[in-house]
Amino acid sequence: MTDQNQQILLAGRPEGWVEARHFRLEQGPIPEPGEGEVLVRNHWLSLDPYMRGRMSDAKSYAEPVALGAVMVGGTAGEVVVSRDPHFKPGDQVVGMLGWQLYGVAPGRMLQKVDTTHVPLAAYLGPVGMPGVTAWYGLNAICEPKTGETVVVTAASGAVGSVVGQLAKAKGCRAVGVAGGAEKCRYVVEELGFDACVDYKAGKLKDDLKAALPRGVDCLFENVGGEIFDALLARTNAFARIALCGMIADYNTTDPYCMKNVRTVLINRLKLQGFIVSEHMEQWPVALRELGGMVAAGKLHYRESIAHGLENAPEAFIGMLKGRNFGKQLVKLV
């Protein structure tokens, strides 16, 4: 064990695009766990779009990260010291210990995981928060029926890739939207979607029309903006929309003005936003299904990996700009 902790702190609140100057790397002592607490050496750090919202002090569903505080984030690592009888050194755990090498948390805030058949990093992706997000939004909100068309935006990402595969397993037609020919090939050829529209090709409306001859019954929306607007126009009557993310607007000072909102009324759509952490009662069922699928090789995923905590800010900025392929992680050991 090294004798120093490394942490990345929030140094400033961005207006528009996040820049490296909004973060600060610091070193300090390794924290000591108190009674009922556990010290963890983080092996993996998860980078996710929601973190952009936590950098802002605008009103939201969660408190912002304070200036000078460790950036929030999911982690997976190994117990070093435990003062909780339910954990022992060497246990593999996931938690929310943030952008740092070592973290302390109450035992009740950590989840012990089995890495026999599922890699540790996967507990931050398809068998973690992104996977449960996909599972909940699809099953609880979209409620797809066999033969229906399910559309997923950001289809090659950590959430979208799982949504499409779960939809296929339910007998649905899965259509993705992704940025670039390479990502669309991956979505169709490796993930098994029926079609994928490249929104960067410059023919968004025409390509959506061609890919969706029977319209949209379920939409899992991760992007927002022009893509969401164009898909609203393709919805069928009584379609269901799980509004998971609006990444197109996270870094802009001039949000896109929706033109097809009246479709919600005309087609009697169900449109529901959700925060997966508000539905913890569903996590055990979701994780059992997702873990079983990954262990059996029935749920495919891809990871983009940055190496070293010091490279987390650049990887995060790249993810917000769509440079990542699949789940964005930082390897800390």
Rank of each mutant, 00 (worst) to 15 (best):
A237V: 14
I247R: 03
T253I: 12
D194Q: 04
M258S: 09
R240L: 11
N267C: 11
A174D: 01
L212R: 03
V159L: 09
L243F: 11
A195K: 04
I241P: 01
E289F: 13
K183E: 02
A233E: 00
L204Y: 05
K205S: 14
W283S: 12
Q282M: 13
G160I: 11
A210N: 07
S277F: 15
P213T: 12
L231W: 01
L232P: 00
I227N: 05
E289W: 12
G179M: 12
M246D: 01
F193A: 07
C196A: 14
F228L: 15
E281Y: 04
C257D: 08
G215T: 03
A233I: 02
C184K: 13
T252Y: 09
R268L: 12
R234P: 00
K170L: 15
P284T: 10
V216M: 01
I227M: 09
I227R: 05
V261H: 02
L265W: 12
I247L: 05
L219N: 00
K270N: 08
A248F: 09
I275A: 07
E182H: 11
G171K: 07
N260Y: 02
F228A: 13
V175M: 04
E278H: 14
K170A: 15
D229M: 08
V162P: 04
V261P: 00
I275Y: 00
I241S: 02
A233R: 00
V175D: 01
Y186F: 15
K203C: 09
A167G: 08
G164L: 09
D206N: 09
D206S: 13
M280N: 07
D217E: 02
T253W: 03
A248K: 10
A201G: 06
G225W: 06
V276M: 14
C196Y: 00
G179A: 12
E281P: 00
C257R: 15
V177C: 10
D194C: 06
A169S: 13
G202F: 07
G291C: 07
N236H: 06
A248P: 08
G224Q: 04
M280K: 14
L191F: 05
V285K: 15
L269F: 06
E281D: 14
F228S: 05
E182C: 08
L243Q: 08
L243R: 01
T252F: 10
G245L: 09
E289Y: 12
A181E: 11
A169Y: 00
V197H: 05
E182D: 14
D249E: 15
A233G: 01
C218I: 07
C257L: 13
A286G: 05
A242V: 11
V159A: 09
V264W: 05
D198A: 06
I266D: 04
F220A: 03
G202S: 04
D254N: 13
G164F: 06
F193K: 02
I275D: 00
